[in-house]
């Protein structure tokens, strides 16, 4: 009882102002205008080509961004743990600095970099690679780069602690037994860092699924669920449909959270 007293306010606060609103949305998604229960919105979500495509694009984009983050993040984490030396501070700064900037600043930064008279066009023209400035606006590549920019630090910071905990004698043992450096990495280090990679992937995938500011400002031609939620909330104001799409995103996030917890338990 004495233990519960300091805990109760926080739990009640979240239950009342976080859980209840979310449940309210789930309820709204299955309630028809006349108050009866309906699954019509889910039938539409999972039956209509437009919505199916939006869900597929959401998942594909998140998966692609996650993959890019692993490919770019693993080498950086590896270097940070094994070779960084005096560069360690610079890399840590690079990982933390973006967290101090607003999401709008970072998105705006990509717009500026690739603006018609921005630094990239300046460089391309200076090198004589193009004659007139390229119009990059709205390209999917830039939107993806901006998403990776936001999420990459999370990936690196998830992999680093696991790499740090690997006993280097295992690699030395592999080397003594005749494995080349590359083979030792592939058969010893990489499998042992699997857990950090998975943790980072779940985290990045989860956050990518819900992100919308980047795509809203940079375009890219994709229609993801968060974008549709934003647009339908602003324009059609079909709140039942918005609730149904929100519920799908919510369930996805809960699934990711469950995976994350299983991973933590297994890792002890």
């Amino acid at each position: 009882m004495r233990r519960l007293l300091p805990l109760a306010p926080a739990l009640l606060f979240l239950a009342g102002f976080f859980v209840l609103p979310m449940l309210d949305i789930v309820g709204r998604s299955i309630t028809a205008a006349d108050g009866s229960l309906t699954l019509a919105r889910y039938a539409l979500l999972f039956g209509d080509a437009f919505y199916l495509r939006a869900m597929a694009e959401t998942l594909a984009l998140s998966a692609g961004v996650t993959l890019l983050c692993v490919l770019a993040g693993y080498p950086v984490a590896y270097y940070l743990v094994r070779h960084a030396g005096r560069w360690r501070g610079v890399i840590l700064f690079t990982l933390v600095a973006p967290l101090l900037t607003s999401i709008i600043m970072r998105t705006f930064g990509w717009q500026v970099l690739f603006a018609r008279r921005g630094p990239v066009n300046l460089l391309l023209e200076g090198l004589g690679l193009v004659e007139a400035p390229i119009r990059f606006t709205g390209s999917l590549g830039i939107a993806i780069a901006a998403l990776v920019h936001v999420l990459l630090p999370f990936m690196v910071l998830s992999i680093t602690p696991v790499l740090q905990s690997i006993d280097r004698r295992l690699e030395e043992a592999a080397a003594i037994l005749g494995a080349g450096r590359f083979r030792a990495f592939l058969e010893v280090t990489l499998p042992l860092s699997w857990e950090g990679i998975l943790t980072g992937c779940i985290l990045v995938f989860m956050v990518a699924n819900g992100s919308f500011v980047t795509l809203l400002l940079l375009g890219g031609g994709l229609q993801t669920l968060p974008l549709l939620i934003y647009q339908q909330f602003n324009t059609t104001r079909d709140f039942g449909m918005v609730s149904a799409m929100s519920t799908v995103l919510l369930l996805l996030a809960l699934a990711c959270l469950a995976l994350q917890l299983r991973l933590v338990r297994k890792g002890g």
Partner: peptide
């Protein structure tokens, strides 16, 4: 886990939900 769970939920969903509920 419960106290930390808002970190994992999509903010756009919570924003929409909170507006209606509040």
């Amino acid at each position: 886990t419960f106290l930390l769970s808002p970190l994992s939920m999509p903010m756009i969903v919570f924003g929409f939900a909170a507006l209606f509920f509040l």
